[in-house]
Nucleic acid binder design. Structure first.
Length: 435
RNA sequence: GGAGGGAUGACAGAGCGGACGAAUGUACCGGUCUUGAAAACCGGCGUGGGCUUGCUCACCGUGGGUUCAAAUCCCACUCCCUCCGCCA
């Protein structure tokens, strides 16, 4: 949620920044008008409330003085004022609800670093990395045997079975087998081991309450993209960011514990309602995938470092895995609702010949912490909202695809990078049973 | 799933219709004393909103209700604890 006080203080600045994300000036003017109206009504209701309290105090006094007549008279007056107060409060509350609902639909104010753009085609590339780039290789090169899409490799080697996944849960629910399943598990462990020294490892619930989903900004705006378990009032989490952001919901943190760094590995569930029919082959876009997340609650001053640290760790993993990747600064049109600034990492997958998004590293400023009400105690004893930062390290299903395509050998086997050897009992080659 | 008990400030814990935003203790912060520290003593010490910055409103698990007045009474729910059942 954006800062209403800031909107009041500098309406033109906020309006101009949000206009870059397509929020009209009139929408913001409506919010400002509602705010003024609400405060006017609130004052009226509170004045009446104060009157009731004062009269009630006097009733008690008169009672104790055995002055029954005065007590009766005051009671009657108080009842009348109370009736008016009830009406005034209801009206005020109604406006407050309208205001809050409107505010919940407003996206975060984009950072100055975010470029303008309509959609993902206007994201700005920051840099690329590939194996041997420091040896002077102008760009990565791939042999013909690497130009095979992962679903074909998966079938050949018996490590990916989309048909069985569909039989069990419908299309776009992948099922991994044998070495394929083991590879997924290896990647998760690899990442958690890499980061769990400085980031506390958490294994959170995979379902969340509505208020938990509200805190990150996934609700109310993106309800159609989530799986809902209506009978129990729960939502399947689309990312570990959801439970991690609410881990300290409603708390005031000691500044000494910041930055508070967490990592979690979970299944992530997405309906992909708006993406029907697009990129649906193999693992390009699926309803359930494993992802490891890094997360930090921090002070505003720590936010840049916290963001850079997560980005660095994501790159370390990709480099250790030897995958070609690029960094993109998301433009205003592609930025997530809650984010003020996001860097995406995309890995190049030679078999499908395209870049696959495997990480988003985002700074949310106080947008999420305002909703989640996570604060910290500053050095002068006051409280302030924390900043939240998080990023994927990484989305494993797409990394899986890039790995099997990149490391496919001339004989059809897949020779995975050595960093994964400890997770495969030393032998990282995946062969067909007959080869 | 069944039976009972509970939820109050950082923590412990009183309050069970009116003077309660809440006793008391601990912790914490400042001061006195002391060469310094401890002890003792004195003072301070929740969060958020509104506006005329002094006042006002809200908050005692959550949501409703009763009342002139609710932490306190009533209803529902959630969570925690104990016991029984079931289960990985």
């Amino acid at each position: 949620m954006i800062d209403l006080a800031q909107l009041r203080r500098e309406p033109d600045t906020v309006k101009a920044a949000l206009a870059r994300r397509g929020v009209s000036e009139s929408t913001m003017d409506e919010i400002l008008a509602l705010d003024i109206e609400h405060r006017r009504l609130l004052q009226g209701a509170e004045a009446l409330r104060a009157e009731v309290k004062e009269l009630s105090r006097q009733v008690g006094e008169a009672r104790r003085a055995k002055d029954v007549a005065t007590a009766e008279k005051l009671t009657t007056t108080s009842r009348e004022v109370g009736d008016r107060e009830r009406v005034a409060s209801e009206v005020s509350e109604r406006v407050a609800t309208t205001l809050r609902d409107a505010l919940l639909m407003i996206p975060n104010v984009p950072d100055a670093r975010v470029p303008d753009g309509i959609d993902d085609s206007e994201n700005v590339e920051v840099r690329r990395w590939w194996v041997d780039m420091d040896q002077g290789e102008p760009q990565p090169t791939y042999a013909d045997f690497q130009r095979v899409p992962h679903w074909e490799i998966g079938n050949e080697l018996g490590i990916l079975d989309m048909e069985s996944g569909a039989k069990i849960a419908g299309s776009m629910f992948p099922l991994f087998r044998g070495a394929g399943s083991r590879l997924l598990r290896a990647l998760s462990s690899f990442s958690l081991n890499h980061n769990s020294g400085e980031y506390e490892e958490i294994r959170p619930p995979s379902f969340a309450l509505t208020e938990t989903m509200m805190a990150t900004g996934h609700l109310p705006k993106s309800a159609d993209d989530m799986y809902a378990i209506e009978r129990d009032g729960l939502w399947a989490i689309p990312t570990a960011e959801v439970p991690l952001t609410s881990l300290r919901r409603g708390e005031i943190l000691d500044a000494g514990v910041l930055p508070l760094r967490l990592t979690a590995q979970t299944a992530c569930f997405r309906r992909e309602a708006g993406a029907a029919g697009r990129d649906t082959r193999g693992l390009l876009r699926v309803h359930e995938f494993d992802k490891t997340e890094l997360f930090a609650y921090c002070t505003p001053e720590q936010a840049d470092d916290a963001h850079a640290d997560i980005l660095r760790r994501a790159e370390e993993l990709l480099q250790a895995l030897g995958l070609t990747y690029r960094l993109l600064t998301l433009c205003t049109g592609d930025l997530g609702t809650a984010s003020a600034y996001t860097i995406d990492l995309e890995v190049f997958s030679p078999g499908v010949d395209r870049w696959l998004e495997v990480s988003s590293v985002s700074w949310y400023r106080d947008f999420q912490s305002r909703r989640a009400n996570v604060r910290y105690r500053t050095s002068d004893g006051t409280t302030a909202l924390v900043h939240t930062v998080n990023g994927s390290v990484l989305g494993w299903v797409r990394v899986w695809a890039a790995l099997v395509e990149t490391y496919r050998q001339a004989d059809g086997s897949v020779k995975l990078p050595d960093v994964l050897a400890p997770y495969f009992g030393g032998d990282t080659t995946i062969r067909t049973k007959t080869s």
